[in-house]
Design a protein around this nucleic acid. Structure first.
Lengths: 261, 261
DNA sequence: CGACGTGTTGAAACGTCTCAATGAAGGTGG
DNA sequence: CCACCTTCATTGAGACGTTTCAACACGTCG
């Protein structure tokens, strides 16, 4: 019915090439120019920067998005303080972004799935303000930002789409603040599960059954609570028959009830 | 030493024209084409969209930003659901933006001072997702977004500045999430006061003594706590000699100590 | 004047955190 | 292959911070 949720392996994108052919740290920083990186035929097109472009425009974009990068689980796509050069579109896998805070305090500001854009927060200071770590072996399209700006000046639909993407990011963060500011722990966990679920649905994965790639601690940080509280919320939901929990594996049994926590 | 903090009256901007000549509700919706609305000579230029433009470019921008709007205290600049047409740059006064939430729950997502830009969150859906209310009699420059996009395609510095503004908004919101997710009530109130203080300083007002234009409830909503807790935090700070509180009037006595709450 | 919106303060209730113990899963080297 | 280690997750009991409910004070405005 649904593709199995294998965010780490968008198979045909890589053609015959093993997605992670190199061992060790080198692989996580490799830049690979790949003939298959055609925005026009990308399966993620409807989610990505290319969504509103016609064939000709997509071809132009493709000429800008020439390189890929693979990032092994646990490795950084970029670190806080790195010079900002490019945006990254997640092709496969998933990432967490971690905002560094005064005195070592960390905050997981978000999780990115295939089709999501990473790095918008680096534009203003021309350096990344946060870390981005791969939660599993992942691949991204590298979008050199200066080239994108040049292209945006030529292609009005692309310009509009970039503006919409940035605006959407702002709206998303506002929603997150509402959550942090006005919901109980249970409500936050429920909203998080439902949010993930609908994002999986958009990508063709089952919205009912999925794997949490992040730890309880990451979830907790993102939701403004301790990992123990996350764990307790999940257990409570399971006891009430709303979900099934088996480690990182989650099954939603009653979406409506979960929504009204 | 400092200009008195009169955000509601950036006097000479209006020239000989009374800023709020009309009585009643009509005033809050009035569009006024005004000969003085020259981005090139605006005192807020260093904060605003025009900050990086040369004289010629500023003149082009001025031709796009032709109208002003005045909004009386308590009235809305726009409401959630209103069609998105324009961004607004605060010229004088101040605003709060209120995110509407499921089931009447409200969240004050931010406060805008002169030079700040309002409405970026409306781009993605072409309708405003939140309300914007004037906290005092205020005035804004109206920036028709489509015209701005056209101009951005011509003027690379303007394009870059708009991108930076959007990115800055994203960074700001991330910082707010960190606060909501990982700080105690006292820390949040302290950070809020220090943040306001530095924003006043940027605008030439005293960073030491200022008036809170919002209610305790607005502050609380913005900071993810109840109004009573805000009040208690302020009282505690006063008791410890960190600040002076007299209703909405705040004096910072010890910035360092406040920063390490 | 009384009504209202706003701000302060107190005491008890509540939710979340802290600390601690235990168990399960995954990787490594003998 | 198993013992071992580390990381991750679960659960409990008490401590702590914030909210709730309530009372009261203050200023503005009709």
């Amino acid at each position: 019915m649904y593709e199995s949720q294998a965010l780490a392996n968008a198979g045909h994108h890589f053609g015959a090439v093993d997605a992670f052919p190199m061992a060790g740290d080198a692989a996580s920083r490799a830049l690979i120019a790949h003939p298959a990186s055609q925005c026009g035929t990308c399966v993620l097109r409807h989610l990505c920067v290319a969504s509103t472009l016609n064939d000709n425009e997509a071809a132009r974009l493709k000429s800008v998005v020439r390189t890929w990068r693979m990032v092994r689980q646990g490795h950084a796509l970029y670190r806080a303080g790195d010079a900002f050069q490019s945006l990254y579109a997640v092709r496969s896998g998933s990432f967490k972004t971690v905002a560094q805070h005064s005195l070592g305090r960390q905050y997981v500001s978000g999780f990115s799935l295939p089709g999501d854009l990473l790095g918008l927060d680096g534009i203003v200071a021309e350096s990344h303000p946060c870390d981005a770590f791969a939660l599993e072996d992942s691949a991204v399209c590298v979008i050199p930002f200066q080239s994108l700006e040049v292209l945006c000046r030529e292609l009005s639909p692309l310009q509009q789409h970039v503006h919409r993407l940035m605006s959407a990011e702002i709206v998303r963060e506002t929603a997150q603040m509402v959550m942090l500011g006005s919901m109980t722990a249970d409500q936050r966990v429920a909203a998080f599960l439902l949010n993930l679920s609908s994002r999986f649905a958009l990508r063709g994965y089952s919205p009912r059954e999925f794997t949490l790639r992040m730890t309880r601690e990451d979830m907790g940080s993102h939701l403004g609570m301790k990992l123990e509280t996350v764990s307790r919320s999940l257990s409570r939901f399971q006891r009430r028959g709303l979900i099934l929990v088996s480690g990182k594996r989650i099954t939603l049994l009653n979406r409506e009830a979960l929504g009204t926590c």
